[in-house]
Computed example of a mutant assay.
Amino acid sequence: MSEAEYLGGRLLLAMPGMGDPRFDHAIVAMCVHDEHGALGIGVGKVRDGVTLHGLLEDIGIDPGVAPDVPVLDGGPVETARGFVLHSPDWGGEGSVTVNPLCELSASLDVLRAIAEGRGPSKFLVALGYAGWGAGQIEGEMRGHGWYAAKGHPEVLFDTPTGRRWTAAWKREGIDPSHLVGQTGSA
């Protein structure tokens, strides 16, 4: 694959009928994709019973001025590991630029900054991630599993969690109610 074909910075949308119930109506912010594999953060489902204040208290950070927002279910891999997707107006050590979508940070620095009111203006906090080995996501896309939408920061940061999947399809000019759960063959 050429660099232009990699999916970093895109929104991966689960196709209807994908077959894996963990990814039903999933929307994944693709953060890293290269010849070695891919890593994305799920942004379409809230982690039951986990809020930012609770998470901060669990790791010994005073919530301070941080809003008590729900924490997202980032994916089935390393579900205790935290990630922050955020606007580019904050950058700390280890932040990774995910053009054109966002920045990705996994350090405690960003959480401390949010609690102290000096963090990014827009952010999402997730636990876990979705990961694919070399060539795996490409195979799933050929098998009618995923659609790679453009990276729309407004879908990520300005759309309510449960509406992101539909909003991303609509930004692509596609009415998701017209999608079917299986493909045909000629």
Rank of each mutant, 00 (worst) to 15 (best):
P76C: 08
A66H: 05
L13K: 09
R142F: 08
G82L: 11
R163N: 15
V32M: 12
R22G: 02
G117E: 03
R164H: 08
A66C: 10
I137Q: 05
S87W: 01
E140Y: 02
E154C: 03
L56V: 04
G40K: 05
Y129I: 02
G145L: 07
P120K: 07
G162F: 06
V43W: 00
G94A: 13
A148T: 02
S87E: 07
A134H: 11
P120G: 01
V32Y: 10
D89F: 11
L101F: 07
E138G: 09
T79S: 14
H33C: 05
M141K: 08
V125Y: 00
A115T: 06
S177I: 13
T166N: 11
L127G: 06
L127K: 08
P63G: 11
V98F: 04
V50T: 13
G162R: 14
F83R: 01
G128Q: 07
G143L: 12
V155C: 04
D62T: 10
A80I: 10
G145A: 12
A66F: 01
A106F: 02
T159Q: 03
T97K: 14
S105W: 02
F157E: 02
G128N: 03
K122D: 12
R47K: 13
L56T: 06
D24P: 00
F123E: 00
D24Q: 15
K150V: 00
L111F: 05
G94E: 10
F83V: 03
S87N: 04
Y147Q: 04
D73G: 01
G162K: 14
A26N: 04
S2P: 07
I137P: 00
L11V: 00
G17D: 06
V28S: 06
G139L: 12
R22H: 15
P100Y: 12
S107H: 02
F157D: 03
H178K: 15
P100Q: 07
S105Y: 05
G17N: 09
G19H: 09
D109E: 15
P153G: 12
I114V: 14
G94N: 08
T79R: 15
M18Q: 12
P67M: 10
I174F: 06
M15Q: 12
G128S: 06
V65G: 10
K45M: 10
H152F: 14
A167V: 10
R171Q: 15
T51P: 07
F123I: 00
A126M: 04
H178R: 14
S121L: 08
G139N: 15
V50Y: 01
E172C: 06
E3D: 15
S185K: 14
P76Y: 05
S177L: 15
R142A: 15
A130L: 07
H36C: 03
H144T: 03
Y6H: 15
L179G: 08
V43G: 00
V65Q: 12
P88V: 07
D34I: 13
G37I: 11
L108N: 04
S87A: 14
G54L: 09
R112F: 13
A186I: 13
P100T: 04
M15E: 03
A4T: 13
F23C: 01
D89G: 11
H53S: 12
W132P: 02
D175V: 05
R171D: 04
I27W: 02
G19L: 09
R22P: 00
